[in-house]
C-alpha cells in the first residue's frame, strides 16, 4: 500500500492557551473521501490549517505528501470557510479563480492561455461562467462560495480540502456540488468539513467526528444516534454510513 497523503500522529494544537486539537491521529489515503463532522469550535478548520501549514502543531507530527505541511502547495486545493473578503476590492470572479493557478506558476511568470482555460472550465463546472467578469463584491454569498470552489479546482489539485463549501449555497447547488464531488472522488482525495449530517453518508468513504479529539467511523459502520448526540451535544440526524462499492477497508484508526 502506498504512503498515506496525510498522516497526523498524536497531533496537539493550542491556540491562545486553549487546547483546540488534542492527541489526534489520522491518516488519509489516496482516493479517500473523508468527511469531518463536529460542533462549532470543534477544531475542524484548525485541522485543515495544520495540514496546509498555516497553523503549527504544538506537539505531535504531521506529514502531507510525505513532507512537512506547506511544502506541497501545487497539489492541494483549498476552499476556506471564511467569506469575509473585502467586497469593495476591484477584482473579477475570473481573476479570483485564476489565483488557483498561482501555485503552478513561477515568480514573475504571468498567467497564460492555459491558466485562463482552466479557470474558465472551473467556473463552468461550478455554474459561474456567465458571472466570470462580475466584480467580486457583486456576487451573492453562495456565488462567492462557488467561485472559491472553482478557484480550488482551477489548480488541478490531487488533494481537496473543503471547509464547509455548501454552507451558503441553495439546495439545488448543494446537490450539484455533491454530484461534482462524486465525480471528483474518482480521481481526487477529498477531505470535506461539513454540517450536512443527513446527506454526506451517501457520498463519503469515511467519517471523522472531531471535537478536540477524534472519533473515526469506517465504511460499513453506522454512526449511531448516541454517538452523534454526544458529539454535538444535541439531537442530530442519524448518519447512516454505507460502504461504497469497490472500496478497500483501511486499517482501523479508532481513537474514541
Amino acid at each position: 500500500m502506498t504512503e498515506p497523503l496525510i498522516v497526523c500522529d498524536r497531533l496537539c494544537v493550542d491556540l491562545g492557551g486553549a487546547k483546540v486539537l488534542d492527541g489526534l491521529s489520522l491518516s488519509v489515503h489516496e482516493g479517500d473521501f473523508l468527511a469531518v463532522l463536529g460542533p462549532n469550535g470543534g477544531g475542524k478548520t484548525t485541522l485543515l490549517k495544520v495540514v496546509l501549514g498555516l497553523v503549527r502543531p504544538t506537539s505531535g507530527s504531521v506529514t502531507v505528501f510525505g513532507k512537512e505541511p506547506g511544502c506541497a502547495a501545487g497539489r492541494i486545493g483549498y476552499v476556506p470557510q471564511r467569506l469575509d473578503f473585502d467586497r469593495s476590492f476591484p477584482i473579477s470572479a475570473m481573476e479570483v479563480v485564476l489565483m488557483g493557478r498561482l501555485s503552478r506558476k513561477k515568480l514573475f511568470q504571468r498567467y497564460g492561455r492555459q491558466d485562463r482555460q482552466k479557470a474558465l472550465e472551473a467556473l463552468e463546472t461550478t455554474g459561474l461562467a456567465s458571472l466570470a467578469q462580475r466584480r467580486i463584491g457583486a456576487l451573492s454569498g453562495g456565488e462567492l462560495q462557488r467561485a472559491l470552489i472553482a478557484r480550488a479546482l482551477a489548480g488541478e489539485p490531487e488533494l481537496l480540502l473543503l471547509d464547509e463549501p455548501t454552507a451558503s449555497v441553495d439546495p439545488d447547488m448543494k446537490t450539484t456540488i455533491y454530484d461534482l464531488l462524486d465525480q471528483l472522488k474518482k480521481s481526487h482525495t477529498i477531505v470535506l468539513v461539513t454540517h450536512d449530517t443527513g446527506t454526506i453518508a451517501r457520498h463519503v468513504s469515511r467519517i471523522a467526528c472531531l471535537n478536540c479529539t477524534l472519533d473515526m467511523h469506517e465504511p460499513g459502520s453506522t454512526l449511531g444516534r448516541s454517538a452523534l448526540d454526544s458529539l454535538y451535544g444535541y439531537p442530530v440526524d442519524v448518519v447512516e454510513h454505507r460502504a461504497p462499492r469497490s472500496h478497500e477497508t483501511y486499517p482501523d484508526h479508532r481513537h474514541a
Binding site: G53, L54, F85, F89, E95, M99, S103, F108, R110, R151
Partner: peptide
Amino acid sequence: WLFDKEFVAISFDEEYARISGL
C-alpha cells in the same frame, strides 16, 4: 509589472497566497 499576480494575491487573500507557496 513583474510582481503583478503576486501583489494581487497578497492584497486580496493573503492566506491563499501563502498556501500557494508565495
